[in-house]
Write a protein that binds this DNA or RNA. Structure first.
Length: 460
DNA sequence: GTTGAGCGTT
């Protein structure tokens, strides 16, 4: 991005070094637009590195040639890498190696809206608007406030009626609004998710932005972070953000089974325990086969997409046809492979749509296809899975606690080691699911997930 | 102690 052109990464800085100090120091080379010292979010202790942005990128050359000592520490200045560059070590490292804008994407999903970060709390919408009107006709101004506390959240949005105006604003990342600096970025499309054919999820229970697009939504617990990973910002993106899966609730781990598929575990489909599919792509394998791999979650993806927005980690999980699972008797639902990355169906917008809300069923592979009815869609959070023998993925049972017929399950399936998912509240459940939750569970299920219906439709 | 972080309302 243009904005990253004058940006330097400064590593190895002292914990004593502040933003101001960096600015003072580097101002010897040219106008410093911005500096930041990264801190641990929780402890707020400096992490030992920061960034400096020069208004004139050409000064970097000089800066890079010198050695720098700040607060007694010899620091290392390097060009700031974009995410994309970080992932690709081999690089000529010349100025605009990776540029996001205009490039391959052809600008499909662009918004004429700009995200403005770093707003001073005192800034009003009027002041905000006044400033940006210099760039074009402003059609909308939003300054975000915390819903409860009413406090400014430090960011807002500004919309223009033309791309040109947007481009003019984005030409530089930092804008000076009466002495305060704000940073602008193209706003992430909040809805407009590419990919699936707009299946609406009705997002009732969801929080966060995921809900509207259908595809992007899946955070079954309260954190929406995962969806960030999926944002494709329009360019460079090969694929639309598939389902993502943000099963973010850690904890449940369904281990892999001997002969069936294992579940990745809510929380991290791939990341924690089980090892399902590879981190970024993969989807379900063929459920009929042993060990079908489940897609992995986005956790493996990029940490952030804010600056580069590289859409990499498709979360993937494209569940194949999920439907059969839920309880379809017959168990072996043929879930296709669905995910990007994995197979034939390639890019079918697998996404999770449908998933969450609908009550997953886990079908037993065996003959019976026991479904565990997921309930209200709150995958991650709690109850979701009911337990249950014999239930066929019915969406209605949101909390099926116990495994009514656990024995039966076991009996039939042989391979099951546990059954009956308990609800997260610890309510009954005949089986000791709690145990496996805590340990990552080695339990092997043989079932499959049933997904929501949405998927089915999408598959065709 | 060496590559961040923030994304919505009517």
């Amino acid at each position: 991005m243009d904005s990253d052109q004058g940006k330097l990464f400064i590593g190895g800085i002292s914990w004593e070094t502040s933003e101001d100090k960096l600015k003072d120091y580097f101002s010897n080379y040219g106008e410093v637009m911005h500096t930041v010292v990264m801190r641990d979010k929780i402890t707020s202790r400096p992490r030992g590195f920061g960034f400096v942005v020069f208004s004139d990128p050409s000064v970097l050359d000089r800066v890079l040639q010198d050695k720098h000592t700040i607060d007694g520490k010899t620091v290392e200045a390097k060009r700031a890498l974009s995410r994309e560059e970080q992932q690709t070590p081999a690089r000529a490292s010349n100025s605009n190696a990776t540029r996001n804008s205009g490039g391959g994407g052809g600008g499909n999903m662009r918004t004429k809206k700009i995200f403005v970060g770093g707003l001073p709390p005192t800034l009003t919408e009027e002041g905000f608007k006044e400033y940006f009107e210099a760039y074009g006709h402003v059609t909308d101004v939003v300054v975000m406030y915390d819903q409860n506390t009413r406090r400014p959240r430090g960011f807002g949005f500004i919309s223009f009626d033309t791309e040109e105006a947007v481009d003019r604003v984005l030409h530089k990342t930092f804008h000076d609004l009466n002495g305060k600096q704000v940073e602008v970025k193209r706003a992430l499309p909040k809805d407009a998710n590419p990919g699936a054919g707009g299946h609406s999820m009705g997002g009732s229970g969801y929080q966060g932005y995921g809900s509207s697009g259908g595809v992007n939504s899946n955070s079954y617990d309260s954190r929406m972070d995962s969806s960030r990973y999926m944002q494709s910002q329009g360019s460079g993106g090969g694929f639309p953000p598939y389902g993502s899966s943000g099963y973010s609730n850690p904890g449940y781990g369904y281990g892999s089974s001997n002969n069936g598929m294992g579940y990745g575990g809510y929380g991290s489909y791939s990341s924690s325990n089980t090892g399902y599919g590879a981190p970024a792509a993969v989807a379900y394998g063929n459920p009929n086969a042993a060990n079908a791999g489940y897609g992995s979650g986005p956790q493996g993806g990029p940490r952030s997409s804010w600056s580069t927005q590289a859409p990499s980690g498709y979360g993937a999980m494209g569940y194949g046809n999920a439907a059969p699972w839920g309880g379809a008797p017959g168990g072996n639902a043929g879930a296709g492979s669905g995910g990007p990355g994995s197979a034939p169906t390639g890019h079918s917008p697998g996404g999770a749509a449908g998933y969450g809300n609908q009550g997953y069923g886990y079908g037993g592979l065996g003959n019976q296809g026991y479904g565990y009815g997921g309930g209200d869609g709150s995958y991650g959070s709690q109850s979701g899975y009911g337990a249950g023998g014999g239930r066929s993925g019915s969406a209605s049972n949101s909390n099926v606690g116990g495994a009514p017929s656990g024995g039966e399950l076991q009996g039939n399936s042989g391979g099951y080691m546990g059954n009956g998912y308990g609800d997260a509240n610890g309510n009954n459940t005949g089986y000791g699911n709690a145990a496996w939750r805590s340990d990552g569970g080695q339990v092997g299920y043989t079932g499959g997930y049933a997904g929501g219906q949405a998927r089915q439709a999408q598959q065709q």
